[in-house]
Design a protein around this nucleic acid. Structure first.
Length: 264
DNA sequence: ATGGTCGCAGAGCGA
């Protein structure tokens, strides 16, 4: 008998501003586990009750005032919850937890990196590169079946952005970021599930700027959100979906949810 | 055309 587990990841851009949107998503798609990024709330003020009402009784929260913040909401018990602060700067960007079957879920919000792709001119860009380097060191030791998901803030492939040429020097698609992300991927032999199921030649986005007059008409998106697995989980991954329609919902996040179905 | 829009807080910054 096989067990089906669906795991979702969504940069929600404030959980308090969008709790109804999340409820709509959970009712419609019923994932077992939801990884959130940019919750923008301290743990004491996290809206836990609406999730419990929907059966997500197991909650690994890792928030801070104002910015960032990650959380794992789960119908399945979570254990060995770890809240990482990779740069010892108080930023809440990574929370991980194990399931009863031994799988680990690692939920990450990589720094956006500011506007100028130069570490000396723009410390935020340096922080982003440093963060990935910390993850590379961490990734060396990952052996258990692990899902690494979240907002990586990097769109590595040509068709992960609306224009490879026009974004070549735009933070999220610069070669230095792509090289570093590829190094991280190689370190753990991580498999990029979205591209495992969708050919590299096909455009695939998870984020569209709020600034476009009509996001759908201009369709200038980027694939910033990812779900990677260790090779020992690959054969269990049955499908991967990007729920583009959520970008068109009222009061949307600028990111859409991604969901992987595992057959265990 | 170098703008545009969000959320947090309660001005301006980060995204």
């Amino acid at each position: 008998m096989t067990q089906k587990i669906q795991i979702a990841s969504w940069n929600i851009n404030s959980i308090r501003a969008r709790i109804e949107l999340v409820e709509k998503f959970l009712i419609e798609y019923q994932p077992d586990i939801l990884c959130l990024q940019e919750t923008k709330v301290v743990d004491d003020l996290f809206p836990s009750a609406p999730f419990r009402m929907l059966g997500y009784n197991h909650q690994a929260l890792h928030g801070q005032p104002m910015h960032h913040g990650v959380a794992i909401l789960s119908k399945l018990p979570l254990r060995d919850i770890r809240r990482h602060d990779w740069q010892q700067n108080g930023e809440a960007r990574h929370v991980g937890a194990s399931l009863a079957n031994g799988m680990r879920v690692e939920n990450v919000y990589v720094p956006a990196g500011g506007d100028i792709p130069d570490a000396e001119e723009n410390p935020k860009f340096g922080q982003k590169l440093n963060f990935i380097n910390q993850m590379i060191a961490w990734s060396q030791d990952v052996e258990t079946p692990t899902i690494l998901t979240g907002d990586f803030n990097i769109a590595p492939l040509e068709h992960d952005v609306w224009s490879h040429k026009q974004l070549a020097n735009v933070v999220s698609h610069t070669q230095i970021e792509i090289d570093l992300l590829n190094k991280l991927q190689g370190t753990g032999n991580w498999v990029d599930l979205a591209r495992h199921f969708t050919p590299a030649e096909e455009k695939l986005y998870t984020w569209w700027s709020y600034r476009a007059r009509d996001y759908a008409a201009s369709n200038r998106g980027r694939r910033l959100d990812h779900m990677w697995v260790t090779p020992n989980l690959l054969e269990k991954a049955a499908s991967h979906q990007v729920h583009v329609t959520c970008r068109g919902w009222a009061k949307p996040s600028d990111h859409v949810p991604i969901v992987t179905t595992f057959s265990l």
